[in-house]
């Protein structure tokens, strides 16, 4: 099950005004995996997904989806992909069931088959009661479920989701994660873009971290976190010059591998960090700093991103 279904070689998109949204991206997505593109807003995730789904024309480089070169045969590629875009693109002139029904027809299903499949998916996605409602009457979570149902209706080989849970309430987000997990168990290949590290961590078999259109790291979440080289991350807030404090902590706290200022706090990475908190407070105190807040965590993808870029994902 390790056949490659998406491959890109030097995929590049330069928008007018010399805006290099994606720069020489090389990716390899295997059949059946959930692959994540993680990065802050403006990193080039949506442009990458756009190129793979035929809506953005690459400036250079190549991309194959399901064995077909995207720029050469976009109409063929569209047969084998399902797309859940970032914004609500449901057909507002049609009701909930009709959105699914006509999607099936676009993809070559007969009237009877499309109607049956639409009803089945409404059932599966718990939208049967809303079958005849106008799509504008749906809540954000329901609209998102309908978009996922629509995207998988024609049984695509690869499902693309662009920031699928942005703007969803926590409950709807969990519900969507469940859906994606179920699809994954059924063998669906999924490529999703996200700027939520928890989402990438929770769902993805492999994650490509990108920023400014470039691939910074690509591995499993575990391996990425291991690459940090520390097992504990301490975040320290204090009054005073945090640059000085970060230098003090990095040199004085035993096992500290790195320290940097991120958003009015010092982020300290420590290996073998049992009992590190009292040492941090004492060290800061000795250097004349009053600690106002202190937290301790295991390395996350956020830590990985900070290590790679010197900034956090929210920037």
């Amino acid at each position: 099950m390790s056949e490659t279904v998406i491959r890109t070689e030097g995929l590049t998109k330069v928008y007018p005004g010399d805006i290099r949204a994606v720069n020489g991206l090389d990716l390899d997505v295997k059949q059946g995996e959930i692959f994540g593109l993680l990065g802050p807003n403006g990193a080039g995730k949506t442009t990458t997904a756009g190129m793979l789904t035929t809506r953005v024309v690459p400036t250079s480089g190549r991309a194959w989806v399901g064995g077909v070169e995207v720029s050469e045969h976009p109409a063929l590629v569209k047969q084998v992909i399902g797309v859940v875009p970032q914004s609500n693109t449901l057909d507002r002139s049609l009701d909930v069931r009709e959105n699914l029904y006509f999607h099936g027809r676009f993809f070559g299903m007969g009237a009877k088959e499309s109607r049956r499949e639409a009803d089945r998916l409404l059932e599966v996605f718990r939208l049967t009661e809303r079958a005849t409602a106008p799509v504008l009457a749906l809540s954000g979570g329901m609209a998102q479920r309908l978009m996922v149902a629509r995207a998988i209706m024609h049984r695509p080989s690869i499902l693309f989701l662009d920031e699928p849970t942005a703007g969803l309430d926590p409950q709807s987000r969990l519900a969507l994660w469940e859906i994606l997990g179920d699809l994954h168990r059924d063998g669906q290949t999924i490529l999703l873009t996200t700027h939520y590290m928890e989402e990438a961590d929770q769902l993805c078999a492999r994650i490509a971290i990108i920023d400014h259109g470039e691939l910074l790291a690509l591995d499993t979440p575990e391996a990425l976190k291991k690459s940090v080289g520390a097992d504990t991350v301490v975040t320290v807030s204090a009054h005073g010059d945090l640059e000085v404090l970060s230098e003090v902590l990095r040199t004085k706290v035993p096992g500290a591998s790195s320290a940097r200022c991120v958003e009015n706090a010092v982020v300290l990475e420590v290996s073998g960090g049992g009992g590190v908190l009292p040492i941090v407070i004492a060290t800061a105190d000795a250097a004349g700093f009053t600690v106002t807040d202190l937290s301790i965590a295991e390395p996350t993808l956020e830590t990985v991103f900070i290590n790679l870029t010197g900034k956090d994902l929210r920037d």
Partner: peptide, 29 residues
């Protein structure tokens, strides 16, 4: 109102089968 209709139990999609990578001819499609 919206939240009341959100699912509270996992949605099962187990009956969704995935087609192999196979395409109809571009002109027919």
């Amino acid at each position: 109102m919206a939240n009341a209709t959100e699912p509270t139990t996992p949605i099962s999609t187990s009956s969704i089968s995935i087609a192999p990578i196979a395409t109809r001819s571009a002109s027919k499609a």
